[in-house]
Design a protein around this nucleic acid. Structure first.
Lengths: 402, 402
DNA sequence: GCTATTTAGTTGATAAGAAAAACTAATTCT
DNA sequence: AGAATTAGTTTTTCTTATCAACTAAATAGC
């Protein structure tokens, strides 16, 4: 009970350093409300443990200040190396990241099949990981942990996949299986949750305590951050925004149910609509199936336009519902592909803002955050960093108990 | 920073006593993880402050135990008297409650008009309160605080009503206005939030940390309890379940927008449907407009049946969406009026359970909690108790600082 | 260039809290 | 009656946070 206090303080300070990127002890004391003396003690522990380091020089514009110059503290990248893995439809992407969030290597490869056994995945992942490490002159021994993001329903606390489009079987203890193959701690979670972790740690979410991340790829995902913590639900299967229903007896969804949001806004849904409306496009790019439809809509094709608009309206309705339920400070629309522009368009957001309960207060900010194609893998890596930080902090606690 | 620890411990112990109703110190130590020594210290403070009392005797079945008999602790009702007030469409209901949650008096009266100025409401409330106190042989001087529940959009942290169907004007600092009239602290919040507080303190929610309360009266309300705390959103206007959209370009809602859940399941919505379908009922009871429709549906009238079924399906869809988003441990359907049976019927709940993401885990429990007609006022009173407990705990903290 | 001033960070002393251990209290079993 | 058992309190010890006094390292001003 008494030690928990110190553990909380250590976490608070570590998080404050991460949020600030680099910060002097005195500012840590001010921003956290912890006394300077305690900040000295705790930062000394963190320094000794190697999680943070002092950053000299670079006094910005503030060097015209009198007195002893402040010494900034920052996360020490070399403290840990982690890998973030995203298993998607038919691609595997990997990012190597240091403890400070710096990208140290990346790798993407096609998967021969969309669905496979968990043990197969583990083997493929091991090879891909070895390859990625090699390319950066690193080895397995340097890795502290692996974060693993997958579409589907994942109970992160147990590293257990109830169901994933990437796995041939249901109910797989994926963390344990992959961990056994790699000989490393593996932390698995739903992919959209992990993007939310990344936004919270290294993205615009760092400045907020309550925000929601909506991701769009093949499906629609959501991560919920409340009070500075990712909310996952009690069975680990909350935040299934893509499968909330927007229409009674509605369109068929990949999940087998009807009327899911995803069945109206995902690319396969748009293409289905286009097809049944008789639109035919010369196939240009197998990876960008929905591009020609969007182009046609922009070029004034009325049918294409109607399809895209309808998707936008459904998406706006979904966003409005999220705002009505959570009243967050911020919604981040995190998209990897430009093709989803139509869902982030200003008139869709305006539609959403019109559909929320109106009060004399500005509505939540809606931000669209265009990541590169490694967004998901970076999310997974960030989660690994979070977990590795936990481990290091526990180590400090154990040492100081001696 | 150091004192916050003690304040947390005091809260933990007080809450544990409330949850347990009555409990011995040793069980408090076990259930909270706080040491016996600290429990002794803290309970001594609470006893001295008068918030709790020792309850002798009544050893249940466990009196066949050796050793020193345990002395149970319980909330001390006499510590505080509070009032809970619910302002509804055209009724005002009041409950007097002691610190232990015991009902000490109640009162309901018709309001001449549905909408009024905040200052008018304050005056009416004062008279009604005086009357209620009189009837129980109590006086204003005995009251510690008043909780006030209103439909509409309320920012509880500021006691500020953005909009309410009961108030003639928007943006009223209702707590301050009523407080000035009564000369007592007044704590206002959205009515459904307060029902959630009551469920958390004195209802089935006491056993859970994450649950959702859905209320149905004229409208549809929601209260969200996450991690043992009521979640209100960042502007104080979250949990607007009744105004989440379930249909694009849908039915018109009282709020002026279209497709709100409420516009499909509230009684005015059902009656509107019945009317446009040409159903005519001999008016039996002005208070129970929807009763005849439900009776007709039960008696086999196909049109009535279709209307009621449709409402049930829309409601099921809304419930499923809540489960998909929050994945709570429990959903409590808190209803005052039996007439809403149709929405709590087993096949509606089965429909909801079918519409959530399916995993090999039991779905959240859905409980229907039938309160009497003072549910709302009791919720408001419970909120007042919560706030008064805060005040008392702060008093202890201030004293021990001397 | 030297001292005063300013700001950052550390250290030692102090106070407060939590909990282990030793103790007291109140009961039942034999 | 006394041993055993269970509940609750008190004493002591340890941890932690903070205040206040200190050291460190810079600039401003003469």
């Amino acid at each position: 009970m008494a030690k928990e206090q110190r553990e909380r303080s250590r976490r608070t300070i570590l998080d404050a350093i991460r949020r600030a990127d680099r910060v002097a002890r005195i500012d840590l004391a001010r921003s956290t409300g912890i006394s300077q003396a305690t900040v000295t003690t705790i930062t000394a522990e963190l320094l000794h443990q190697g999680m943070i380091c002092e950053v000299a020089g670079t006094d910005d514009q503030r060097d015209a200040r009198r007195g002893r110059p402040r010494v900034d503290l920052a996360l020490r990248g070399a403290a840990h190396l982690v890998a973030g893995v995203k298993v998607a439809n038919r691609t595997l992407s990997i990012v190597l990241m240091d403890f400070a969030g710096k990208n140290l290597g990346e790798h993407t490869e096609r998967l021969a099949v969309g669905r496979m056994a968990a043990t197969e995945l583990a083997v493929i992942l091991k090879h891909a990981l070895e390859h990625t490490l090699d390319a950066s002159g690193l080895s397995f021994a340097d890795l502290s942990a692996v974060g693993l993001g997958m579409a589907g329903v994942v109970d992160a606390s147990r590293g257990f996949v109830y169901w994933s489009p990437s796995l041939a079987e249901r109910n797989q203890p994926i963390s344990a299986i992959v961990s056994a193959e790699l000989g490393l701690p593996v932390f698995a979670d739903n992919d959209a949750n992990l993007v939310a972790v990344a936004e919270m740690y290294f993205g615009p979410g760092a400045a907020y305590r309550d925000f929601i991340v909506v991701t769009i790829e093949a499906g629609v995902g959501m991560g919920i951050v409340l009070d500075g913590k990712l909310y996952r639900g009690t069975r680990g299967c909350g935040a299934e925004f893509g499968h909330t229903k927007v229409q009674l007896n509605g369109a068929e969804c990949r999940c087998g149910q009807r009327g899911c949001l995803e069945a109206y806004v995902a690319d396969y849904a748009l293409m289905r609509e286009a097809e049944s409306a008789g639109l035919v496009f010369s196939q240009t790019d197998a990876d960008d199936t929905v591009g020609p439809l969007l182009d046609a809509a922009r070029d004034g094709n009325a049918t294409a336009r109607r399809i895209v608009d309808h998707a936008g309206r459904v998406f706006a309705m979904g966003l409005a519902n999220l705002i009505n339920i959570f009243d967050p400070q911020l919604i981040i629309l995190a998209g990897e592909r430009m093709q989803f522009d139509h869902l982030f368009a200003e008139d869709v957001l305006a539609d959403a803002r019109r559909s929320i309960v109106q009060i004399d207060q500005p509505p939540p900010e809606i931000l669209s955050h265009k990541w590169g194609d490694l967004m998901w893998a970076r999310g997974a890596a960030t989660y690994a960093i979070d977990k590795v930080a936990d481990m290091s902090l526990r180590e400090i606690a154990a040492q100081s108990a001696v």
